[in-house]
Each structure stands twice: as C-alpha cells, then as structure tokens.
Design a binder for these strands. Structure first.
Lengths: 198, 198
DNA sequence: CTTGTAAGTAAACGTTTATTTACTTACGTT
DNA sequence: AACGTAAGTAAATAAACGTTTACTTACAAG
C-alpha cells in the first residue's frame, strides 16, 4: 500500500491558511487551494469529506489546537493571578505574532457561523478548550482574589482585548510607528488584571 | 424619469445582512440575494459597481454608520469618565442586541481582509470613526484620570470585551440560562473602567 | 518480483458564480 | 399626450465552483 505523503497534507493546510489570511475565507476555493498546493483536487478529498469538513478540521484541530498549546505553555494554574495572566498574554502575543495565518482563521471563528457553531459543539462535546484557564479562574474566585463572573465573561475580559491588540499589531506591522510592542501588551495586561481583581 | 424604489434598495441591504448573519459572508451570492429580495440581479448593479463595492458600502455606510450613531447617542465627551463609559456600553449593548444582523457583518470587519482594509481606508480618509470617543479619551488622559495609551489600544480595552459579550449574548440567546444580561454588562463595564483608571 | 491496495492525478461533471445584454416599464418634463 | 430617460426585468454569458470519474502510481506484503 502506498503511504500518505504527509508533506502534501501539510502543504494543503498551510496554503489554505495563507489564502484565508491574504484573500479571506470567502475567497478560498478548493480548486484554487489544490492548484496553489500543487495537488489534484481529489487529493484533498482523500482526507476530508467536503469543504465544510476541511474548514472545520483546519479550524478546530490545526488552528485552535496549536493556539491552545502555545497559550498554555509553562502555564501553571496554581500560580499567582497576576503572574498567570501575564504568562498567558505573553504566550499568546508571541505565538500569534509569528503565526499570522493561523490568527486569520482564528478571527473567522467569531464571525463565520460554520466555525462558530463547530467551536461550540467541540467545546461541549469534549470538555472545554483552555480547561487549565478555567481552573485557574475558578481557583482565584474561590480565593476571593478576583470577582466572580460566568466563565465566558471572564474569558471575554481576559482574551478579547489581547486579540484586538494582535489584530492591530498586524495592521501596523509594515508601518514605521509600530504601535503594538511587547511593552504595550504588558502595560495593557496590567490594566486588565487590575480590573479583574476584587 | 422613473424614480428609484427606495423600498427595494432597503430590502436588498436588509436581506443581505440576514443572509450574512445566518449563513455567513462566504455564502452570500448576488444571485441568492437578488432572488431573496425579489429583485433582478441587474437591479443591485444599478447602485453598486460590483460585489465588493456592495459589501464595502453595506459595511461602512449601513452597518458602521448606524452603529456609530447608536453608540454615541446622548454621549457627552466632557462627562465624567465612568459615566461616559457606562453610557457607551449600554448604548452599544442595547443597540446590537436588537440588531443581530448588523452585528454579524460588524464581526466580519475584523476577519475579512476586504472589510478590514475598507475600514482602515475610511478611517484615514475622512477622519476617525467615533471621533467623540477619541476626544473623550484624550480629555481624560490630559486630566490624568486614565493611563495614557495609543488610541487604538484604548479602543481595544474599551470595546472588545463588550463586543465579545454581545457575541455570547447571541450564542446563549435561545438557552434557558441566558448568561449575558444588562446587569452583567454593567458589572463587567465597571471592571474595565477600574482597569483603565490611573 | 509480482500483486493488492490505497494515494494520487488529470480531466470532466453538472451547478452556481458574478456580471451583462437586450428589452420593458414607469414616470417627470415638455 | 407623447417623449426621454433612468429603473427595472428575464435570460444569458463565460468563468469558476465543489465534487467525481476513470485512470495511474508507488509501495508493503506474499
């Protein structure tokens, strides 16, 4: 039996992310993707049932999976609140900065109904993404260090300004001013921490 | 000369927003839109040059314009900082809650390169969106009430958690728990204010 | 070293896409 | 009341779409 060419699989996924980042999800077609990856359209359909299946797998397994892993690297849920949040912010910023293409599809997770629903299904089906962060937050609530909010509200407070800043980082990336630096990220992080504390 | 049928123009825009909200921007086609609006495809091209022109106009003029107007209603840039921010948050939440379809396209503004670039061009070309909020923030910086950040960073801190909460409001809308209430919004708003203060 | 089998390809499938052509309709102006 | 003109339509355009068919290739097992 002829074995799979894993390089081709990876090329397909990477080029898909690149097209999405440069032209948008609405301009990604299977034919364009196949041509850009130097592959027959049929090759994509060996692994994926159809376009939706491909996009959902790319989003959940490739993008969200790697993103979660990077964010949680060396993160200790038992650590001091400020320490923990700073670790999360730096991990996130450093990872996304170097992975613009993944970030682009990540952003579509909030707008595209297909991806948004897939995320919710996945979150319910096999436990929560970012479970250690959930644990970290509950721990700090029970220690009376931060205010008690529903978990999704905590997540909005913790992640959304950061993701917005990453977006702005890329908007400004090729301009001389370069507004979003690691220092700004850390200062903004401190403000968010201060707001969450009791 | 036969006059324009303004009802038809409005129907086209409203149904476009509805399709985008329900099926995603990537599933909006001019033919589907024309059929759903009970109009010939050619009719759409009377007002708009092509699909991109249509989407950008819909996004900038229809969605962002109305959103800005709703957010700034009765907002006084000279008001007390906490008061001002609360007014913005309540205006935003109450407006978006009732305008899910506009909100859907608004969300695509961060992910779709077409809309993202259009927004940046527009922001540079004819002064900033939300200029009164810019003024409000600079005023509070100069009064030494809040920390000094680049304006885009301030905007990220101020708006992005709120928009995330609106997203969650719709995710939970048809479930019994109904997590995102006006009370939660206000509590979260207080946390954001606290974080921004000096 | 043949052979079974899944990986992979090129070309094609019918459908849908964005946009246009050729035509009709409705109405303010003369 | 006829006319000019822009609004509006139905049908058609070529190109691109997602997906499949029919075929070839490469390799592990016998």
């Amino acid at each position: 039996m002829r074995p799979k060419n894993l390089e081709k699989e990876e090329a397909i996924r990477n080029i898909a992310l690149q097209i999405i980042a440069e032209e948008g999800l609405e301009n990604l077609s299977m034919q364009k993707l196949a041509k850009a990856a130097n592959v027959s359209p049929r090759t994509i359909y060996i692994k994926y049932e159809n376009k939706e299946d491909f996009l959902i797998t790319l989003f959940i397994e490739d993008v969200l999976g790697a993103y979660e892993k990077a964010v949680l690297e060396n993160f200790n849920p038992e650590a001091d609140f400020a320490q923990g949040v700073k670790k999360i912010w730096l991990n996130t910023f450093r990872y996304l900065k170097e992975n613009r293409n993944s970030f682009a599809l990540l952003q579509y997770g909030k707008s595209s109904p297909l991806l948004n629903k897939a995320f919710q299904r996945e979150n319910i089906k096999q436990g929560h993404f970012f479970a250690p962060i959930h644990h970290f937050l509950r721990l700090n609530v029970s220690k009376d260090i931060i205010r008690d909010f529903p978990h999704d509200v905590h997540r909005a407070m913790l992640f959304s300004p950061l993701l917005d800043l990453v977006n702005e980082y890329f908007d400004y990336k090729e301009r001389p001013e370069q507004i979003i630096t690691e220092q700004i990220i850390l200062e903004c992080c401190e403000a968010v921490i201060k707001g969450m504390l009791k």
